[in-house]
Design a protein around this nucleic acid. Sequence first.
DNA 1: TCTGGGGTCCTAGGACCC
DNA 2: TCTGGGGTCCTAGGACCC
Length: 424
Amino acid sequence: MDFFGLADCNNFYCSCERVFRPDLRNKPVVVLSNNDGCIVARSEESKRLGIKMGEPYFKIKDLLEKNNVAVFSSNYILYGDMSRRVMSLLSSYFPKISIYSIDEAFIDLSEISDLGYLKELSHKAVKSINKGVGIPVSLGIAPTKTLAKMASVYAKKHKGYNGVCIIDNDEKREKALRLFPIGDVWGIGRKHSKRLEYNGIKTAWDFTQMSEGWVRREMSITGLRTWKELRGESCIADEDMPHKKSICTSRSFPNQGLDKLEDLEEAVANFAAMCSKKLREQHTVCQTICVFAYGSRFRDDLPQNYINEIINLDVPTNDMQEIVSLAVKALKRSWKTGTYYYKKAGVVVYNIAEDKVVQGSLFDTVDRDKQASLSKVVDEINMRNGLDTVRIAVQGYNNNWHIKNEHISKQYTTNIKDIIVVKA
DNA sequence: TCTGGGGTCCTAGGACCC
DNA sequence: TCTGGGGTCCTAGGACCC
C-alpha cells in the first residue's frame, strides 16, 4: 500500500514567537492578524481559555489582559523564515515533500514499503525538527491525503502518539472515522457540514456510509473526492504547483478607512509593487491587473463606493514601474468624487504565465530588455538593503494607509540588529 | 473606536457562434 | 415576433483551504 504523510506545525505562529521567548512556554499566547484586527493563532492554553479563531481583538481585549495572555502582531518575515527551516529539515528525512502552506507539507511516501522503518523515520523527523528549529510538529500517515490530514489531528491531540499517528489498516481507519466530527474533515466547510448534520450525518464515518450518487448530487465533484478519500481511495492528485495562478496584495485600513485619493494612491502603488515583486520571484508575468477598493461592511452609516477596475495588457509583464503606473492610473480613472471611505483595497494580478515565453506584441513600444535589467537591479538592492530601499515616487512615505501592529516581535532571524544576544 | 490576508477549484449562466 | 439545438468561452459567485 502506498502512503501519504502530512506534517503540520502545531499552532505555528504562536510556536514561532515562543522559540525566541522561552519564558512564554506553557503560557497562553495569541497572534493577531494584520492591522491587529482579529485572532489568527492561539496556543493550546489560549484555546483552553475559550478564545476562538477569527475573534475580533477589541472584543476580547479584557479577557486577554485578565488572563495574562501574551499578544503578538503577526510577523510574517519571522514566520516565513521559520517555515523554510522546518521544510528544509523535513525534506532531509523525506525528499518528496510538497509544501501546502506556511506550516504544512504533504509527503509522498510511495517509495517506502517497510512500515517499521517508516515509523522509525517519522519519529526521528519529528524529534529533530522539534530540537533543531524549536517548532513542535504533528505527522499523520495514511493511504490518502484526507486520511493523513485526519491522522495528523490525532497525532497532535493525543500525547501518547509522540507526534506521529499512522492509519495503516481498515480497522484503524474505521475507528478514526467514527470519532471524527464531520465538520473537521478536510474539504468539508461550514456550509456543507451544517447541511450534513441536518441530514443526521455527524461523523466522518456517517458520511462514508452515504451513497456515491447522493454525495455527487449534493456536494458536486469536490465532495465526492473527499468521500472517496475517506473510504481509502486516493484521488487528490499532487498538483506540483508550477506557479501561482493569481497573486493578490491587499490590506484593510485603520479606523473608518481612507477617503483621500493621495492616500489610496500610495497604498495601491505599494500593493502593485509588491505584486510585481511576487511575480518576479516565481519567474512569471501577468496579463491582467485588477485594482479594487471598498468600504466597511459593518458601516452602513458611511457613504460606500466600490471600485473594481480591470486592466488587460497586450504584452504580459512583471515590471514594477509598469504595473505600478497602470494600477495607479486605473484607480484615478475610477475615482468617484465626493467623500467615500475605503476600508480595504488591493491589487490582484492574474492570467499568469512563465516569463520565458512572453509573446511580444507587434506594436510594443517598450524596451523589454532594458526594463527587465532595471527591475533586477532594484530587486538586488532591496534584497541587500531592506525592503523598498529603491522605490517609485508614488509609493510615497506618508504611510497614512499603514497597518497597525502594536505588538510586533523582532526580526530575530532576518535582521542583524534584532539578533538574539546571549549574556555570559 | 476596533471585524485578516492570500489562495484554489467548481458551477451556473450569459454572450456569442453556426 | 416566435421558433431550435449544440457548442465554446468568459465571468461571477460560492465553497473550501490555511
